[in-house]
Design a protein around this nucleic acid. Sequence first.
DNA 1: CAGCATCCTTTTTGATACTG
DNA 2: CAGTATCAAAAAGGATGCTG
Lengths: 159, 159
Amino acid sequence: MLDTNQWEVGTQRSYRYLKESKVSSEISELQEPTPYVQTSPASQSDAELEDLVQEIIGRVADKWTMLALDVLGEHGPLRFTRVRELMDGVSQKMLTKTLRQMEADGLVVRTVYPVIPPHVEYELTDMGLSLGEAFCGVWVWAAQHRERIRLARQAYQAR
Amino acid sequence: MLDTNQWEVGTQRSYRYLKESKVSSEISELQEPTPYVQTSPASQSDAELEDLVQEIIGRVADKWTMLALDVLGEHGPLRFTRVRELMDGVSQKMLTKTLRQMEADGLVVRTVYPVIPPHVEYELTDMGLSLGEAFCGVWVWAAQHRERIRLARQAYQAR
DNA sequence: CAGCATCCTTTTTGATACTG
DNA sequence: CAGTATCAAAAAGGATGCTG
């Protein structure tokens, strides 16, 4: 069973990062944490919106989802088994679950060719693709900071 | 106990998104516990780098870590209880765990004022701050696509 | 206040076994 | 091939009590 609610936090987030929303790619400098004021058309739907954002992030901030996003983004349409090979480490169960969830969220399309043996292909939707691009910043960050993190952990251990 | 390894996937990722990042060029490394010899031009250190990136992403792609990142980024240095209030939903146990992990990774600094009653402040490091900024793209994406996701789920349900 | 320790429940994940 | 179903193990998380 695919739980639709991985986790939901009744939060009061106020993510300043949305202030000048220009979406992906430009992760260089956002400056001052301007106290949130920007409630243009949807005044009190803010709380709801933030909950949704939270939930979505929770959903996509998943190990396998991100891996699948990357693999599918990288290799175009793939068959189930091929995805599994490329994701290296995912169990069949988890892969099924992940892909189904992504499908339900509109991140991938699942195409079944009614042949024997079965042939099923998975491909990112444009939304899935754009999510991959949105994650770009995090990927770059991780790559850029891997060494500092390693050192920080080392220092923390030795403390 | 803080597990240092939330999950490790021996992957062969190839994230195209790093195409133009200079990223790996500047860190000449000292003692590397890995069997790989660090090849400077990032030729076959790719596999190792990608594993690390994977691990880091796995670490930061955590519900509470992201929330803490946001709250601390938004409100500057905060005391434990205040963070907990702002994160609304986190248990004391999880908050402690999350903050400790972030501290170990060099994302936050934990300052203890030896007074009675105890006074402990948490503040993002510059690295933590930059991670928050890196997540900007995902946040924006989530905000922008929340409706499409909701509709996609609806459609999937009714399918 | 800011935790740590302990117990217990819930979720998640892995390992098979089986099927159209 | 691409799954489903089931059982068992493990991890995550919550609740409570205690402490300097």
